[in-house]
Nucleic acid binder design. Structure first.
Lengths: 252, 252
DNA sequence: ACCGCTTCTTGATCTGTATCATGGCCGTGT
DNA sequence: ACACGGCCATGATACAGATCAAGAAGCGGT
């Protein structure tokens, strides 16, 4: 049993840990990223009052499944989550990876049922935000309403970037782009942008990037050989940021 | 000069055509598709009061360009529009086609600047809906707020479908899927689902589907040979819906 | 009605990535 | 400590679609 305490501790610890439903956005280190409202105490309290936190998900546990009724959107507090949908022939398409501070589940709004599934890649703490409460609240809080629109808009532009990546770029470019994306998101959380552990398998990476496992392996090996990367299984170190950027740079 | 009157006449004609800014959602045949609010006269009037309509765009005219300030989202009244973004190396990635009743431009919300560009594929009438007005209005109209969330959510799920298509499906499957999508959207507007004219070029189709022009041509030829399609330049007739569905059906 | 430009089609060849196959490694449970 | 099962790396081969090339067809302008 390997310890991965830093995953759980990344989000600010609760002051009193006895009642697990007590959430405290105000002291959460991620609040700046997650739902950064104009810092108005009253607003934050209102928001907190609707947010639910349940016990952490274990590796491979399902957060929600496509087709099931949509009730909440989710914020990752710690760990990592993959979003995916199942194709008609039963294969899986990974549509995104979600790290602490990021929000997922918004694709369920249009049909009142989840259009995709989400699964924990490692032990993950998640905040559930009931959408009907959020909707009601946002009608009286313009900044929240705006933030939700922006959040969804961001998801759209991110998807468009992925579409472009899949449609126009080579295997090396795709992998380089993903690594840089993860590095940037780490930086945003004040973690190292040059050294990190991939929470997902090669299969998931390949699936996400429209490539096979073998290709991912080969690209990693190649990049290691050219000295821009050090790869030790899931442990990644970016040795030549410049070169990696250039390898990705044909992407948008 | 070829006449294409039916394009412009698809949306309900204005009662008094002298003042071109007078918009009438209530009599618009597309209102059911476009922003189908609970049919409340007062709500509709409020909505109408903020919608702007300018003179139709000609073929190849730009509706908005990536990087420019975001002010409005747009509803297509007639014609057809393509959305695209320009990659860092100057190439174009088509991210979507928009037909009458469909809404585009929501990717601009997150940054207050358009993340993509939009260009008319043929003469097109467009309604511009200033977003700040829409935002204000939606705070006091729960059904409108909800509809906007749903609209954006829909865009996300559509993008996810395209991601899956690009990542998992063969050239034939991609083309078949696009044709069926267009057919369905035609049906929704009470147009023929089996016979229609493609408003976009082969280049645009290829670009959208992550394929080259040549491949698009070949797929069309192949499908014609097997008898599931009749292709006469941009004129498409689906001869065997069943077979086409099957050709696409490996997609989600 | 004609010209020139753009779009489309079809063929021949090339190539990046998938596929197939095999062996090593690592982590987990007994 | 060991064995098993999933995950990863690497080589050999195959193939779908890209690229290169050339001509045909459509379309707008004069």
């Amino acid at each position: 049993m390997s310890m991965r305490l830093q995953d759980v501790s990344e989000a600010a610890p609760l002051r009193s840990c006895t009642h697990e439903y007590k959430v405290n956005c105000e002291t959460c280190r991620l609040s700046r990223i997650c739902l950064p409202l104009a810092i108005n105490h009253q607003d934050l309290e209102q928001l907190e009052s609707i947010i639910q936190r349940s016990k952490p998900l274990q590796r491979n546990e399902l957060l929600y499944h496509e087709g099931t009724p949509f009730q909440s959107i989710y914020a990752v507090r710690s760990g990592a989550v993959k979003g995916y949908r199942t194709t008609s022939d039963g294969r899986e398409q990974v549509t995104g990876f979600y790290f602490p501070g990021e929000i997922l589940g918004m694709d369920g709004i249009s049909n009142n049922s989840h259009a995709s599934s989400a699964r924990a890649l490692e032990t993950s703490a998640i905040c559930a935000i009931p959408f009907d409460s959020l909707e009601r609240l946002s009608a009286s809080m313009p900044s929240l309403q705006r933030h939700l629109f922006q959040l969804m808009s961001r998801e759209i532009t991110d998807d468009q970037l992925l579409i472009t990546l899949l449609s126009k770029n080579s295997a090396d470019e795709r992998v380089a782009t993903l690594l840089l994306s993860i590095a940037n998101r780490n930086a945003r959380r004040n973690l190292s942008a040059s050294q990190f552990r991939l929470p997902m398998s090669r299969v998931d990476i390949g699936n996400y990037l429209g490539l096979t496992v073998e290709t991912i392996s080969r690209v990693f090996s190649r990049m290691q050989k050219t000295g821009m990367l050090r790869v030790d299984n899931k442990e990644i170190e970016i040795l030549d940021q410049e070169a990696l950027q250039q390898a990705a740079n044909l992407a948008a």
